[in-house]
């Protein structure tokens, strides 16, 4: 037992080097920094919305379809609500639902992947075939199916997106775990007689997490787009007043000819946040995987 712990201490995770290194590389990666700026913009809009939004996003405080002005930076919508404030609060929803969905997907996919990759055998087979079933359905259709079955609402939306991403995470983690099985330090730990569970948790998982983190960042971009897509199809939050970007876009498209700026602002918000996560995801991949160094 003591020996095992000793080995753990020595073998677990390559020394702080990897993350320290990665952070340094990330800081030197210009695109990733741009991504970080986009995300900061997005996240601070989301978190600070109650403080920086000039108006109540639900209140009708302007006349209908005002053009952008100093009072209403993005103009007003049909009901005279301030679009800038609504876009800010929309970030909150996208961030909340997006991060929530990806977190659920990570946990769900992570557990399944860890079981499959860590234990192998029949469980592995069952889990992998199950993920195959879900992966064979285009993710937007899967999400649509789940929302129609569960009814509209934010938790449902979150769950729908989570379920459509979880299989990817499961497979990814399983793949890395399988690759790690034969890694020197894992073999070493095994020869010393560390338990399977211990090896999995202490030695393999920490090293298999890297691709998962990269993937999670990239998937956040897709999640934001998918949430808007569901909103666009009329499957957004149940309260129609919710300033969800996709739902707002449906309303705005009717004014595509008379007030095109609304679509531009809302579409722009979606694009900027998605770009942010995509850039950061790429940056993370490059910095965490020294092999990809140019």
């Amino acid at each position: 037992m003591l020996r095992a712990a000793l080995v753990d201490a020595q073998l677990a995770r390559p020394p702080r080097g990897l993350w320290g290194d990665a952070a340094r590389r990330l800081r030197r990666n210009r695109p990733a920094m741009v991504g970080l700026i986009c995300i900061t913009l997005f996240a601070s809009a989301a978190i600070l919305a109650p403080f920086i939004a000039p108006f109540d996003p639900y209140a009708m405080n302007g006349s209908s379809l005002d053009a952008p002005s100093l009072t209403h930076l993005f103009g007003t919508d049909l009901l005279g609500r301030d679009i800038f404030s609504r876009v800010l609060y929309g970030a909150q929803i996208s961030l909340f639902v997006g991060v929530g969905a990806v977190a659920i997907a990570l946990v769900l996919g992570g557990v399944l992947g860890a079981i499959a990759g860590g234990f192998g055998g029949r469980i592995d087979g069952v889990i992998m075939r199950t993920t195959d079933v879900f992966l064979s359905i285009p993710s937007i259709l899967l999400a649509i199916g789940i929302v129609t079955a569960l009814g509209r609402g934010m938790p449902q939306l979150m769950l729908a997106i989570a379920v459509s991403y979880a299989p990817t995470f499961a497979r990814l983690l399983r793949g890395s775990l399988l690759a790690l099985r034969e890694a020197d330090y894992v073999v070493a730990a095994r020869t010393i007689g560390a338990s399977r569970m211990r090896i999995l948790v202490r030695h393999m998982l920490p090293n298999a997490l890297t691709p998962l983190i990269v993937q999670a960042t990239l998937v956040l971009a897709t999640a934001i787009i998918d949430i808007a897509g569901l909103g666009f199809l009329g499957l957004g939050p149940s309260d129609p007043r919710t300033p969800e970007w996709g739902t707002m876009l449906v309303d705005a498209r009717r004014f595509m000819q008379s007030a095109p700026h609304i679509v531009v602002f809302i579409g722009g918000a979606i694009v900027i946040s998605a770009i942010g996560f995509n850039l950061l995801g790429d940056g993370l991949r490059e910095s965490l995987d020294p092999k990809l160094k140019r």
Binding site: A221, I225, L249, M256, V263, G267, I270, V271, I275, N278
Partner: peptide
């Protein structure tokens, strides 16, 4: 290409139509 993966098809579609 980054813009390509980050823009939802329905936003791009609306823009192209317009």
């Amino acid at each position: 290409s980054l813009f390509g993966v980050s823009i939802p098809v329905f936003v791009l579609g609306l823009a192209l139509v317009a």
